[in-house]
């Protein structure tokens, strides 16, 4: 469904993403992990058109996305959330989502937009009240709103950017279940960027690990957690030694 080849992004002399290639299949959840500054968000920004890639190609359902404007990519079937929720505070919760429902697809009527807004709000568990203001929402509520906005554009591929930062454990579990439900009920393919490995590993089919803008590992969650390069990046080289010693002792 999505095929990324040789993606490069440089900001001046700094290479944020260096020659990354990967594929996403229809219906899967791909986890994208890596430390701060490893290039995860930059990849998302390229996939959704916010940054034009320096080089490389992004093919989505057979169409080249590199160089397209964000609105056109969104209307073409890719939805995205932001790491830090960016709600429109001058609009109500419902209007936020209805806006995405209206402009997220070409040729929408107001009725159709409201319908997909209601669907998205119901799925994430936010009130359908037309007049409820954004200001009443807490951290978890804002993340739900962010997700509802992305869902209302009726994407085929959802780019979920670190949707769990700032949540407690219970809320994290809920959010992870939510992504599972989004795939199961709506058939949406998901790329999920996350810091917190534990929850992510439970949900995703495959994981891709980035470090300093390069792909260092890719595979099933069980393979990734045992990959020494990944452990080194995440926990430092001491941990690799500890793990090796533990393995030696049997």
């Amino acid at each position: 469904m999505l095929e990324v080849n040789g993606l490069i992004k440089r900001f001046g002399g700094f290479t944020s993403v260096n020659n990354v290639s990967f594929k996403v299949d229809q219906g899967e959840i791909l986890g994208l992990i890596g430390p701060n500054g490893s290039g995860k968000s930059t990849i998302f920004n390229m996939l959704s058109g916010f940054f034009p890639p320096t080089a490389g190609s992004i093919r989505f359902q057979g169409r080249e996305l590199a160089g397209m404007a964000p609105y056109a990519i969104i209307q073409g079937g890719i939805g995205r959330t932001f790491q830090i929720p960016r709600p429109f505070r001058r609009l109500t919760i419902f209007e936020n989502v209805a806006l995405a429902g209206y402009y997220g697809q070409e040729g929408r009527t107001r009725a159709k937009a409201f319908e997909s807004a209601e669907k998205a709000l119901t799925l994430v568990g936010l009130p359908l009240d037309r007049h409820a203001p954004v200001d009443g929402l807490g951290a978890a509520g804002l993340k739900k709103l962010e997700l509802a906005k992305a869902l209302a554009t009726e994407p085929k591929l959802l780019l979920a950017d670190e949707s769990l930062g700032g949540l407690d454990e219970h809320e994290m579990d809920q959010a992870a279940d939510m992504l599972n439900r989004i795939r199961a009920e709506l058939g949406i393919t998901i790329i999920w960027v996350e810091h917190i490995m534990g929850v992510l590993m439970r949900v995703v089919d495959r994981v891709m690990v980035l470090d300093h803008g390069e792909k260092i590992s890719e595979g099933l969650p069980s393979e990734i957690t045992n990959d020494p390069r990944v452990v080194e990046v995440y926990l430092g080289s001491d941990a690799v030694a500890v793990q090796a010693m533990a393995a030696a002792r049997g």
Partner: peptide, 20 residues
């Protein structure tokens, strides 16, 4: 809706599919 959104955050508006 679109113009209120644009006045607050142009990037978030385009992420909702708005041609700013």
């Amino acid at each position: 809706y679109a113009l209120e959104a644009i006045s607050e955050d142009e990037d978030a508006a385009s992420a909702a599919g708005v041609h700013v």
